[in-house]
Simulated assay, not measured.
Amino acid sequence: MANGEPGGLRPDTGRAEAFSDGVLAIVITLLVLNLRVPVTEPGDLREGLLDQWPAYVAYVASFGNVAVVWLNHRAAFARLRRSSRGLQWANLFVLFTTVLLPFPTAVVSRALQDENLTDQRTAVVLYALANILLSVSWAMFFQYLMRHPEISAEEVETPFFRGERLRSLVGVVLYAVGALIGYLVEPLLALAFFVALPIFYGVTSTGLYSLRRVTRRFGR
């Protein structure tokens, strides 16, 4: 075949990685556009900036999510020797869900600056749902890699992809918990929870075994 090999295999993954990096760069740019100069009276700039603190926190949470996506993407593709049409679609679904993040980030940052509790709860649930969808896309991505070991490098162990799929499914549960916290308890508490989650995923971005290494290091 002129464009690849039988079964939809492609000789490398470079185009998918380059395209994904470009998309993620755009997402980060869109996130920072939510940080605006406040409209204030002369002498009130400090108060105006402080009043926008939910926008800063939401930016940190979403930037952390995009950073984790990039780390996950880098760790996964470093273990692949070929691409395939199925992998390309799985990768596009991950990007599709990641590109959604600026919208709920803007909604939650705006709602938390207002005093309407109903809107705050709705915004927090929307943010959680977007991240649940992102976690589902990763679970599907790693499920595909588990079912198609022929595109992985020979030295890659199947348990790595199994562990990554589990890590993604844990994300579905944790963001659902965050939605419940925000809706039933306190939206601001859910926002703090959302900031903390990317830390866990950042530490384990090269696999769950990296968490065990960190635990052993601090346990000495």
Rank of each mutant, 00 (worst) to 15 (best):
residue 164 E to V: 00
residue 72 N to M: 08
residue 134 L to Q: 13
residue 41 E to A: 14
residue 146 M to R: 04
residue 88 Q to R: 05
residue 147 R to A: 14
residue 55 A to W: 03
residue 47 E to S: 12
residue 126 L to C: 07
residue 47 E to W: 02
residue 146 M to C: 02
residue 40 T to N: 11
residue 156 V to L: 02
residue 55 A to V: 09
residue 42 P to G: 01
residue 166 L to G: 01
residue 74 R to H: 15
residue 49 L to G: 05
residue 42 P to T: 04
residue 141 F to I: 02
residue 121 R to A: 07
residue 140 M to A: 13
residue 104 P to S: 12
residue 129 L to C: 15
residue 68 V to C: 10
residue 74 R to P: 07
residue 42 P to D: 07
residue 90 A to F: 07
residue 44 D to Q: 14
residue 72 N to G: 12
residue 153 A to F: 00
residue 94 V to R: 02
residue 118 T to H: 04
residue 83 S to T: 07
residue 50 L to F: 11
residue 103 F to H: 01
residue 146 M to V: 08
residue 69 V to W: 04
residue 61 A to W: 03
residue 108 V to Q: 10
residue 37 V to G: 13
residue 43 G to A: 02
residue 108 V to D: 04
residue 60 V to Q: 01
residue 126 L to G: 08
residue 110 R to T: 15
residue 83 S to D: 09
residue 118 T to Q: 10
residue 92 L to F: 11
residue 64 G to R: 05
residue 141 F to H: 09
residue 72 N to L: 08
residue 37 V to N: 11
residue 38 P to Y: 03
residue 112 L to D: 14
residue 59 Y to D: 12
residue 162 R to T: 10
residue 59 Y to R: 05
residue 47 E to C: 02
residue 132 I to K: 03
residue 78 A to T: 11
residue 81 R to A: 13
residue 61 A to F: 04
residue 160 F to H: 12
residue 154 E to I: 00
residue 113 Q to T: 15
residue 58 A to Q: 07
residue 49 L to I: 14
residue 45 L to V: 14
residue 55 A to R: 11
residue 124 V to S: 13
residue 121 R to N: 07
residue 164 E to Y: 01
residue 99 V to K: 01
residue 94 V to T: 10
residue 81 R to N: 08
residue 129 L to T: 15
residue 142 F to Q: 03
residue 100 L to K: 05
residue 149 P to V: 06
residue 156 V to F: 00
residue 70 W to F: 10
residue 131 N to I: 09
residue 71 L to W: 09
residue 156 V to E: 01
residue 164 E to L: 01
residue 83 S to N: 13
residue 63 F to Q: 10
residue 89 W to G: 08
residue 98 T to V: 12
residue 79 R to I: 11
residue 137 S to W: 03
residue 66 V to Q: 06
residue 53 W to D: 12
residue 111 A to M: 14
residue 133 L to Q: 05
residue 158 T to E: 13
residue 157 E to M: 04
residue 75 A to M: 08
residue 99 V to S: 06
residue 93 F to N: 15
residue 121 R to K: 13
residue 48 G to V: 06
residue 60 V to E: 05
residue 82 R to C: 01
residue 129 L to S: 15
residue 38 P to W: 01
residue 109 S to H: 04
residue 150 E to Y: 11
residue 127 Y to E: 13
residue 163 G to W: 01
residue 129 L to R: 14
residue 128 A to S: 15
residue 128 A to I: 13
residue 150 E to Q: 15
residue 121 R to Y: 03
residue 141 F to T: 04
residue 111 A to C: 12
residue 119 D to F: 08
residue 126 L to A: 12
residue 145 L to H: 04
residue 82 R to F: 05
residue 135 S to T: 10
residue 162 R to Y: 02
residue 149 P to C: 07
residue 170 V to P: 04
residue 161 F to G: 06
residue 90 A to Q: 14
residue 105 T to V: 09
residue 146 M to Y: 00
residue 74 R to A: 09
residue 142 F to A: 03
residue 77 F to R: 06
residue 163 G to D: 07
residue 141 F to M: 05
residue 97 T to C: 11
residue 155 E to K: 00
residue 120 Q to W: 07
residue 127 Y to M: 14
residue 104 P to E: 13
residue 94 V to F: 01
residue 59 Y to V: 10
residue 116 N to R: 08
residue 167 R to V: 00
residue 139 A to Q: 02
